[in-house]
């Protein structure tokens, strides 16, 4: 009998030079993978390990020998012999400008990462005259008890669209609409989420880099000034609904679950959950008033 076993994917190795250091990665890996392997910390916003790179943010750009423009490291596959530079003035200046653009058009204050990079790359936000600098000024959308959408924080990274679409959920409740600076993540005709195809899996919330999409619990606690990440514990367990065995990371503050996500690197969920797993925890804490 011919026994057909698990097909083993054979990937050859390629060697890339990153800032003069030879780095070996597997075929199909990206320049970003090579940079990470070389110990470079590359800023990324629209990149996510579980979504197809749209490479819209361009903050991860690097210099690639032979290329006229900079290239997005998060999506460009590494090729044998590539010579990549990440520490040049050109790279730094471009990243700084992308960060200035992000921070002058959206409220990125709730992204610790972006805040850090703004400082690191020396972004100069003061030179933008607020009176003549257009920003996203959308009002926060509160349409249900599960999550909110604050598009003034949105950097249009497409990750939520990808997670709602073919990268995970296949619901397609939201899409990019409009054009240019008027682009918005939107349902059809901007109808409310309950009126849309949304099934409240919250997989969009899980990938949002700027907290534009937020659990209602987090939003309410922040509003009351009581969101205290430093006082929270994160415990990994398994969802109690159905037999798929999704891993849950329970964020607990004051003996209450305030947020649920799932590890991006677990083969069962790849960070995704359904409405029950992400929001159905409430029954363990609908406690009688003391």
């Amino acid at each position: 009998m011919t026994f057909v076993d698990i097909p083993v994917e054979i990937r050859s190795k390629v060697t890339v030079s990153v800032d003069g250091e030879a780095v070996e990665v597997l075929e199909g890996d990206t320049i970003l993978d090579a940079c990470t392997k070389a110990g470079k910390i590359t800023p990324t916003v629209c990149y996510g390990p579980t979504v197809t790179p749209v490479n819209a943010c361009r903050v991860c750009v690097v210099e690639l020998e032979g290329a006229r423009t900079l290239v997005p490291s998060c999506s460009r596959p590494a090729e044998e012999g590539m010579v990549v530079k990440t520490d040049t003035e050109r790279v730094t200046n471009n990243r700084k400008m992308v960060l200035e653009f992000l921070a002058t058009s959206s409220d990125v204050s709730q992204s610790e990462e972006i805040q850090g990079w703004l400082g690191e790359y020396g972004a100069d936000l003061d030179r933008y005259d607020p009176a003549t600098t257009e920003r996203m000024t959308d009002e926060v959308k509160i349409e249900d008890d599960l999550y909110i959408r604050a598009y003034d924080r949105c950097v249009l990274c497409y990750k939520c669209v990808e997670a709602c679409g073919e990268d995970a959920q296949w619901t397609f409740a939201i899409a990019m609409s409009g054009r240019g600076f008027n682009n918005r993540i939107s349902t059809e005709f901007d109808v409310t989420l309950p009126d849309s195809a949304c099934v409240y899996c919250g997989n969009c919330v899980a990938v949002c880099p700027t907290n534009a999409l937020q659990f209602k619990t987090e939003f309410d606690l922040r509003k009351m000034g009581d969101w205290r990440p430093e006082d929270q514990t994160v415990t990994r367990t398994v969802c109690s609904y159905c037999g798929v065995g999704c891993n849950l990371d329970l964020h607990v503050q004051d003996n209450s679950i305030v947020k649920v996500d799932s590890p991006m690197d677990h083969s069962i969920t790849s960070g995704n959950l359904c409405v029950k797993g992400r929001f159905g925890y409430q029954y363990v804490q609908n406690r009688p008033a003391e």
């Binding site: 749209v54 819209a56 361009r58 653009f101 992000l102 933008y128 240019g180």
Partner: peptide, 23 residues
């Protein structure tokens, strides 16, 4: 500004910022 598709940050925001600068 009006014809930028808005997909990438440099162009989506850059085309707006340069118009503001001219203004």
């Amino acid at each position: 500004r009006e014809e930028s598709c808005g997909q990438c940050v440099p162009c989506r925001v850059g085309t707006v910022r340069q118009g503001e600068s001219l203004l």
